[in-house]
């Protein structure tokens, strides 16, 4: 019995949180809702994502200029790839051919060959390239330019900027709808999300979600997407077909990145200003836990997450 308990404890699901303001990763026991350990990772880890085969978790350390690969089951460091310039936000193209890194501080977007991490092109993208999305065909990557209030589309094959368009103030998160038709752009300097028909390209609608709209996460039903509102301290649920907000609930402390459990029952959100991870029960929309983590928690991930669409 004791052995079984130990084994069960060791296999407990963990959430991994990037403490961007102190260069650590918090490994959180999801069952106990408690930080299990805090591991040094590098300078300014902001965003993370799983490798396409789901074997590793990639942490992008902006100031350390590297990518750190973690074992997503334990949070232990597996390997590092150095000389990745200022990786703030990262993403794989859907066809897994390209790895894109946005360098927010240095106004550059890097396109790498995904297999080898060989740099194909460093593209000037002023100012403050922030978040990344792709079209389904993997021909274009879309980047929000936070300080010039624009979205740029880069042709992945030629590594040239195809177009830029003006959007509202301080565009941050960017999200491609599952039908590959619209880009949603979180306007952190305004009160909602702009909808871009990227084939035109043109802004075709605006959805009021709340002040400081920032980042997106799919709910896994190919229909709804969550939006954090960093100034209003709320999360909105947007119907991607009707392009309307269907529900909104409070999440304190500057909600930023999110992760939803596979069964859709709990939403885990980094509360950036409060050094906390906030857990919301999605049936009641009530906060069920606030877990202390490190300074300025940003990206969050766990293996048992909802589908990404």
């Amino acid at each position: 019995m004791a052995i079984w308990l130990v084994a069960d404890s060791a296999a407990a699901e963990i959430a991994i949180v990037l403490n961007s303001g102190e260069g650590t990763v918090s490994v959180v026991d999801m069952g106990a809702r408690k930080e299990r350990s805090r591991i040094p990772i590098g300078k300014e880890p902001h965003h993370l994502m799983a490798t396409p085969d789901d074997k590793h978790l990639i942490v992008a350390n902006a100031v350390s200029n590297n990518l750190v690969f973690l074992d997503p089951a334990t949070g232990q460091v597996v390997k590092r790839i150095e000389k990745i310039s200022d990786p703030y936000q990262i993403g794989y193209s859907p066809d897994r051919k390209y790895f894109v890194s946005a360098s927010l501080r240095l106004n550059q977007t890097d396109i790498y060959e995904a297999e080898t991490f060989n740099l194909l092109k460093r593209i000037p993208t002023p100012k403050a390239p922030s978040h990344i999305a792709f079209n389904a065909a993997s021909s274009l990557t879309f980047i929000t330019l936070q300080h010039t209030d624009q979205v740029a589309a880069i042709d992945l094959a030629t590594q040239q900027i195809r177009w830029t368009i003006k959007v509202g103030p301080v565009p941050a998160g960017i999200w491609m709808t599952p039908d590959d038709r619209h880009l949603l752009v979180g306007l952190t300097g305004a009160d909602g999300v702009e909808v871009i028909d990227w084939r035109k390209p043109a802004v075709v609608a605006r959805i009021i979600t709340g002040k400081g709209a920032h980042n997106f996460l799919a709910m896994g039903d190919k229909r709804h997407v969550l939006v954090t509102n960093r100034v209003e301290n709320s999360v909105a649920i947007v119907d991607q077909q009707s392009l309307k907000v269907v529900e909104k609930f409070p999440v304190p402390g500057g909600p930023d990145c999110m992760e939803l459990t596979r069964d859709g029952r709990e939403l885990w959100v980094t509360s950036r200003w409060k050094r906390q991870l906030t857990v919301v029960d999605m049936a009641s929309k009530k906060i069920v836990a606030q877990i202390p983590v490190g300074r300025s928690p940003h990206g969050v991930y766990f293996r048992g997450h909802a589908p990404r669409q």
């Binding site: 402390g253 500057g254 409060k274």
Partner: peptide, 21 residues
């Protein structure tokens, strides 16, 4: 957190300075 969230951030938002949040 409280000082930033309740005083500094709303002021930045009102002044259109969220670039600097």
């Amino acid at each position: 957190g409280a000082l930033f969230e309740n005083a500094v951030l709303p002021a930045l938002f009102a002044l259109g300075l969220m670039d600097f949040s």
